[in-house]
Design a protein around this nucleic acid. Sequence first.
DNA 1: CGCGTGCTTGAACATTATCAAACAGTGTGG
DNA 2: CCACACTGTTTGATAATGTTCAAGCACGCG
Lengths: 244, 244
Amino acid sequence: MAISLATRQEFTPSRAAMRSSPARATYLRPVQSSQPADPLECELHRVGTSVAVPRGRLVAEQGSPAEYIFRVERGAARVVRQLADGRRCITRFLMPGDYFGLADNGTYKSSVEAIIDARVIRYQRTAIDRLCEQNPSASRRLLALVGRQLSAVQDSLVLVGQKSALERLSTFLLFMAERSEQDRSVVALPMDRSDIADYLGLRIETVSRVLTALRRRKVIDLPNFHSFVILDRGALESATEGDD
Amino acid sequence: MAISLATRQEFTPSRAAMRSSPARATYLRPVQSSQPADPLECELHRVGTSVAVPRGRLVAEQGSPAEYIFRVERGAARVVRQLADGRRCITRFLMPGDYFGLADNGTYKSSVEAIIDARVIRYQRTAIDRLCEQNPSASRRLLALVGRQLSAVQDSLVLVGQKSALERLSTFLLFMAERSEQDRSVVALPMDRSDIADYLGLRIETVSRVLTALRRRKVIDLPNFHSFVILDRGALESATEGDD
DNA sequence: CGCGTGCTTGAACATTATCAAACAGTGTGG
DNA sequence: CCACACTGTTTGATAATGTTCAAGCACGCG
């Protein structure tokens, strides 16, 4: 089925959404946009197009011209960088509200793939540039967004560069918990183990082992493959910084 | 040239050597700025102050208010992030032409320390903001700069997250060679082994071992602790991607 | 019910870290 | 000029951590 460039594609043809178009990298189905929020978003909204992206499909392709900037509305996506020797690195997970492509000038430096059925708004880069030209507050806001991303990637750098497997997983779980719907004790984990592994710079076996170790110690529970529950937040937080 | 598209540019107007000032952590000696180049840089220049920073001294301190944006003119600096448990992580090395603080909003997320006697220009953040307000092309360039930084950090993330010690060192050496004065076969290595280790997420012993391994294999030479020579660039390049 | 995919578990192995010691440059004082 | 200490680097032996390879398990879906 189609997604030619995805390293791997698990297509669960449960929905009809997939018959959209044959094997092409850039087939996204434009749909009406949803509602805007603040005045700036409103501006942005006017130049954006909402698009449905079925699970597994490419939103943007590494190396192709960076025509659009995206914002995830619903669902989740992974930002993937493919190395020459075939290794795969996930540099970010995109959750609702996250932007992608802000800093990619010319061509995309990474691919983006929907992890689950998603909806994204895409903005023509030229339109954004025009907006910034006219509206200094827009460009300030854009700069702030990119700055936040930079800061986040630096955090990842520390995480992956200096920390043990346990520390990485704990940090990751807390991060996911923070990003999920506040009032739910069970946190969704849309990505599979290999996504987590490639994100944290580990192997799936290690991810699995650390997760089950945490479960055995009653720090978390794993009701199924795609969610978890924090049972002992204190323990998880301290595992974040090495006190085992 | 400018805030422009060059990630960096080496001015080496061999000025008078600098004498260091008394030992204070945040003490920088303002001096007259050097010459500007293009119109935008000219604008910037008017709001910048050139400062001498003796080796080892802090240029900016993690957690303190991010009042300035810096650009390294001469010398070299490390961007350091201190973890709670005392581990140290170096996220970047700043060489002439590199900026720091562009994305730090509010407080600095990392400290910056001079590795060797250095000279930096510092720009008041408020002045830069004002400049962007008036001049959309300035803010576009600023955005481009931050974007380039983002891309560089992502590269580091891949490096540190996915690669072996040999791959990391090879990549690092080639990177340093690229950034040093083109026509010199011997490349300066201003930072010491522990800086390299903290940058690459390794221990100094590992750094040392890999370096001597490369020397034994006649891939590089190490005439002294603070420089190296590439003897077999092909071998070094292939070591970058795992073909040992 | 049975198959496939993704997840877990185990044992052997590789790489890197840790601990400890020796070594090399550099500057100091006799 | 030579001992001396100092700091940063190298080297070696051992241990820890994570990887690899190989089963086995479990959930989802026909």
